[in-house]
Nucleic acid binder design. Structure first.
Length: 263
DNA sequence: ATGGCAGGTTATACCTGA
C-alpha cells in the first residue's frame, strides 16, 4: 500500500498539481491538509475521474480542511472535533480490508512560543494533549493504524536547517517536541519515515515562500509526518519526501511525503 | 537573515500560515 500526505495550501488553486502527483506517484491513499474549501466546493468530480473516487472530506470556509482520497472503498469514517472547535482538522477512515487512516492538521501555533500570552500556541498545546488523550483511550496499539498529516512540529535536530537558531521558534521548541513525543507514545506510534531515512540525515518537508531561492537556501523543516502502529512496523518498505514538487509551478510550501507499506 | 511571500475573504485591507 502506498500512502501520501500533502499540505496542499488550497486544493482548488492547486488541483492540477494534485492530479499530477496522483498520476506520477499512483498512491492508494492521498491525505490532504489545508484544502481551504467547504465540502460543497471540494473538487470531488475531477479527483474521482482520475481514479480516487472514495473520498472523505471535512472543510470550512477559508481555513484548514482535510481530506482522504482512496482508490479502495473506505468505511467507518469519523471526523473528530478537537478543543471544542468545528475547524476541520481531522478525518479518519478504515480502508476496506486494510488499516485505519488518521489525517491531522495540527494548529500552527502563531509566533510567540508562550501559551500565557499567545492563544494560538495554547491552542496548539491543547490540541496535542487532546490527541494524546483520545488516541490513548480510544485506540489500541494492537490495531493496524496509520497517522499522517501536517503536525506542524519538527521534532529532531536533523528535522530543521538549524537546531540552535530554531530552538525558540514555534515548530521546534522543546515544549512542542515533548508534547509530540507524548502523542507518539499514546498508541505506540512509529515514525515510518525515520525508519527509512536515518535520523542522522537532514530531511525537510516544508520551505518558506519568503526565501528568494528556497532550494539554494534550503532552510526547511520536517513538519509533515507518517506514523504507523506496531502491527505495521515490519512492513515499512520505502519512504521519501517528493522535494521536486516544491519546485513545481505555483507550488505549495509543503512537499508530499510518500510511504510504501506491506500490509 | 527570518520574513523578504502566498491564499482566502461578503476583498480592494486583514487574517492566517510557520
Amino acid at each position: 500500500m502506498r500512502i501520501v500526505t500533502w499540505n496542499i495550501n488550497s486544493v482548488r488553486l492547486r488541483l492540477p498539481l494534485v492530479l499530477r502527483l496522483l498520476q506520477e506517484m499512483q498512491p492508494d491513499v492521498l491525505c490532504l491538509q489545508e484544502t481551504k474549501a467547504l465540502v460543497d466546493v471540494f473538487p470531488t468530480g475531477p479527483l474521482a475521474e482520475a481514479g480516487w473516487s472514495h473520498q472523505l472530506v471535512a472543510g470550512m470556509k477559508g481555513y484548514n480542511g482535510v481530506a482522504i482520497l482512496s482508490r479502495l472503498p473506505i468505511e467507518e469514517t469519523v471526523s473528530r472535533e478537537f478543543c471544542g472547535r468545528t475547524d476541520a482538522r481531522h478525518v479518519a477512515a478504515r480502508i476496506d480490508g486494510g488499516p485505519e487512516v488518521h489525517n491531522f492538521y495540527v494548529p500552527a501555533g502563531g509566533d510567540v512560543p508562550d501559551p500565557a500570552v499567545n492563544d494560538k500556541f495554547a491552542h496548539k498545546l491543547d490540541f496535542l494533549a487532546e490527541m494524546t488523550q483520545w488516541l490513548g483511550t480510544e485506540r489500541s496499539p494492537d490495531h493496524p493504524m496509520i497517522l499522517v498529516g501536517d503536525l506542524n512540529i519538527a521534532p529532531l535536530e536533523t528535522d530543521v536547517w538549524s537546531h540552535k537558531q530554531l530552538l525558540n521558534v514555534v515548530s521546534h521548541t522543546p515544549v512542542e517536541v515533548e508534547a509530540l513525543d507524548k502523542v507518539q507514545a499514546s498508541a505506540g506510534w512509529i515514525d515510518a519515515v525515520r525508519k527509512i531515512v536515518p535520523p542522522e540525515e537532514r530531511l525537510y518537508s516544508w520551505w518558506s515562500y519568503r526565501a528568494k531561492d528556497w532550494s539554494a537556501a534550503d532552510k526547511g523543516r520536517r513538519l509533515d509526518h507518517v506514523w504507523v502502529t506496531p502491527p505495521l512496523d515490519g512492513g515499512i518498505r520505502h519512504a521519501e519526501v517528493i522535494r521536486d514538487a516544491r519546485g513545481w509551478e505555483k507550488a505549495s510550501d509543503h512537499a508530499p511525503v510518500v510511504v510504501d507499506l506491506d500490509l
